[in-house]
Design a protein around this nucleic acid. Sequence first.
DNA 1: TCCTACATTGGACATTGTCCAAGTCAAGAA
DNA 2: TTCTTGACTTGGACAATGTCCAATGTAGGA
Lengths: 138, 138
Amino acid sequence: MSDLLQRLRDRGWRLTAQRRVVAEVLDGDHVHYTADEVHAHASQRLPEIARATVYNTLSELVSIGEVIEVSTDGRAKRYDPNAQHAHQHLVCSRCGTIRDVHPIGDPLAALPEGERFGFTVSEATVTYRGLCPNCLVG
Amino acid sequence: MSDLLQRLRDRGWRLTAQRRVVAEVLDGDHVHYTADEVHAHASQRLPEIARATVYNTLSELVSIGEVIEVSTDGRAKRYDPNAQHAHQHLVCSRCGTIRDVHPIGDPLAALPEGERFGFTVSEATVTYRGLCPNCLVG
DNA sequence: TCCTACATTGGACATTGTCCAAGTCAAGAA
DNA sequence: TTCTTGACTTGGACAATGTCCAATGTAGGA
């Protein structure tokens, strides 16, 4: 059993076939699928899995911090299983390819007290945009 | 005539009543309306303005750089008329309030060459999240 | 094995955005 | 001023993404 499935079981999750399949689809590096893509991959292993189940499972994984929700383009949200290590995203403006990247320093530190307007600021997400090597050539 | 309307005229835009109204709605600081909110405000001045016209006009304003498109939450995009001065956004995780903020330094500089993977990186957008003063008290 | 609380299903519905054919009108020409 | 024309607007259909719910199924403990 994968680490993720073990952690889910430890949290008291019922390990249904559907949840296993969603977890398997999200397993790996540099995975940034949309909910529909997760559903498509999951359907290959478990043909009758419902869209609603995929949405439910993804929301649960996000709320317990196992998966990060990324919205880079105002279109469908993407789901990033690399929640263990802080990182940011580099997105190709042309084809939409996403890479995980690790900038230097803490982005939060760049926001001075005078620019916080009484907010308790807890998080900073950075999206870098540009053209990927493939799109540069094309 | 506002500066914005003058700039649009200089670009050869036909200054229709609809475009004037959309430009007026977007006039001001700290405006971050969704397209539907722009449509609602515009409808108060020009009751029969169509949704499609608002979407068209907003897209055009974005493509000529007069307005910036902001998607902070994967829900509806918001439109920020403060395109003249580079800035980032601070968002309340509870109520969704948005403030323009000015972090120190260039966020692009924090991404080392070794983390660019052959991309030509041209832009970095930062979203800070936390609780606003109102939501802290509540 | 049986129970039951929790999970899944499928379809209706909501939100946000895009597209298009037909009608309208801003602004330059005469 | 009036005319003309191509750009603009309209309204509604459609697309993409996401949410909700009542009925049904089932994992895991007793």
